[in-house]
Design a protein around this nucleic acid. Structure first.
Length: 188
DNA sequence: TAGGCCATCTGGTCCT
DNA sequence: AGGACCAGATGGCCTA
């Protein structure tokens, strides 16, 4: 496990209340046909905000053939369940995003980025606890990787992509409101 | 305009 | 039998 320097936020916008709210809304149910409302819409990509009925009935059967009525009903119900399932999955991802270090208001981690970032963030917290346990405090050699808030804040949603290390799931550079660095371990 | 990301549909498989 | 889960296909939106 060889630490490498990464970046994320310590200036987290997640308050204790927000965390509790996330816990209380972790079970989000969306009924089939019901308009889906994202949790934390401020954190959600703008392009998804107009997903009202954008995709509704967009997909046509691959063949022009009409399915038998009973099969069609089964398919419709299965589609509703699948939609509902995916909405719940997205809700869970939103909850996860909300407890991760904050991003610029108009940016949002993709699904894969969210999972990788969460992985590294958990690793950082674990490592921090371990260090504190071992040394009684976070050692200097670790603290030196924590940038002051005034540094490394060059980012924008555009920069976010440029700074993102796809293979490891971390930020290589600073971003707005991103004010400290995460140590990442090699995942292989 | 190409590529990335996403929502949705669909059929297959597994489980209850 | 029906629901959950999964992966492939499809097409729309957005950005570089």
């Amino acid at each position: 496990m060889s630490p490498t320097l990464l970046c994320t936020s310590v200036e987290r916008s997640v308050t204790k209340d927000a965390v509790m709210a996330d816990i209380s809304t972790s079970e989000v149910s969306v009924k089939p046909g019901e308009e889906f409302t994202m949790i934390n819409t401020s954190n959600y990509r703008k392009k998804t905000t107009h997903h009202g009925d954008k995709y509704t009935n967009r997909m046509k059967p691959k063949t022009g053939l009409r399915l038998p009525r009973q099969r069609e009903n089964r398919r419709t119900k299965a589609n509703d369940r699948e939609r509902h399932r995916m909405h719940n999955l997205n809700s869970a991802l939103d909850v996860l995003r909300s407890v991760l270090p904050a991003l610029p208001d108009d940016a949002q981690l993709t699904k894969i980025e969210t999972l990788r970032f969460a992985h590294n963030y958990i690793w950082l917290l674990t490592e921090t606890l371990r260090m504190a346990d071992t040394f009684g405090q976070i050692p200097d050699h670790l603290q030196q990787h924590y940038l002051p808030a005034s540094q490394g804040c060059i980012g924008s949603p555009t920069n976010k992509k440029q700074n993102w290390d796809e293979s490891n799931g971390f930020y290589k550079g600073g971003m707005k409101r991103f004010s400290f660095c995460i140590l990442s371990h090699n995942q292989q």
